[in-house]
Design a protein around this nucleic acid. Structure first.
Lengths: 130, 130
DNA sequence: AAAATAAAGCAACAATGTTGCGATTGTGTA
DNA sequence: TACACAATCGCAACATTGTTGCTTTATTTT
């Protein structure tokens, strides 16, 4: 079985996620890393972190892809069924851990994962009178 | 004020949407068009159709972007608040027009648009014993 | 310390989306 | 119906994002 290693780049990326309150794109991570490692390495680390359920992927309405730390909290089985909020002004994506949609599905569909993204104005931008 | 025109390429693309039961990516449209027009033209037509609220954009969990016809039905104000289903087997995206999530938002957020995408197995793939 | 192998770096490539500009073509109006 | 003019198109060039193969580096285990 594959063992995962702790490398400087991985540690650096985890620290960036730890510090950030919002989801980050590959590009944003790269800027914050300041050439700690190669662009490709970032992709590979993100892949590994997703496999290990440490981060999750979020795709915005516009097709932008971002990543955020998973909040494992209490659940034994880890499902990313919380909502995300995408601000159309500052483009920040935040996890709304407590917002869970309820819905009724037609028969014959097997739902395994859900992605619930709301967009509009975040509190910060709403208050700055746009 | 800008007037929009009906060009052969736009008509062809609209017909493709009309015939398709699932959402289509730029690439899928291009294949079906069989060199009716340039790749760039497709992008521009899709942009126009979105501005005119004739189609809407859907971004999948994996970051894939697709487009589908809007169903204007009864609502006066057109909001894309229906759900989409993305099949992890056949990769087709279908609009679930009647599935509308209910949710409770924290204060201070102004929600303008929502994107609710479920993924798993569609009826077609569920029945073919995977 | 050496062996085993996960991870990094580099280069090259693929897919997707954007921009500028000159040429073409729909369409309202004369 | 013909004209004028703006909307649209095609092309080339570029930007961004993501992937792959292969060699080298470095972490971990023995």
């Amino acid at each position: 079985m594959k063992t995962t290693r702790n490398t400087p780049a991985k540690t650096a990326i985890l620290e960036i996620f730890e510090k950030s309150k919002t989801a980050l794109s590959h590009t944003e991570i790269q800027k914050q890393l300041n050439d700690v490692c190669d662009r490709v390495t970032i992709y590979r680390i993100l892949d590994r972190l997703m496999n290990d359920d440490i981060i999750h992927k979020i795709s915005n309405l516009d097709g932008t892809v971002k990543y955020a730390k998973c909040n494992h909290s209490h659940q034994r089985v880890h499902i990313h069924n919380h909502a995300h909020f995408s601000c159309e002004n500052c483009n920040e994506i935040t996890c709304l851990e407590n917002v869970k949609p309820s819905y009724i599905m037609p028969h014959n569909y097997k739902v395994k994962e859900i992605n619930f993204t709301l967009s509009g104005l975040c509190p910060k931008c709403l208050n700055s009178d746009i």
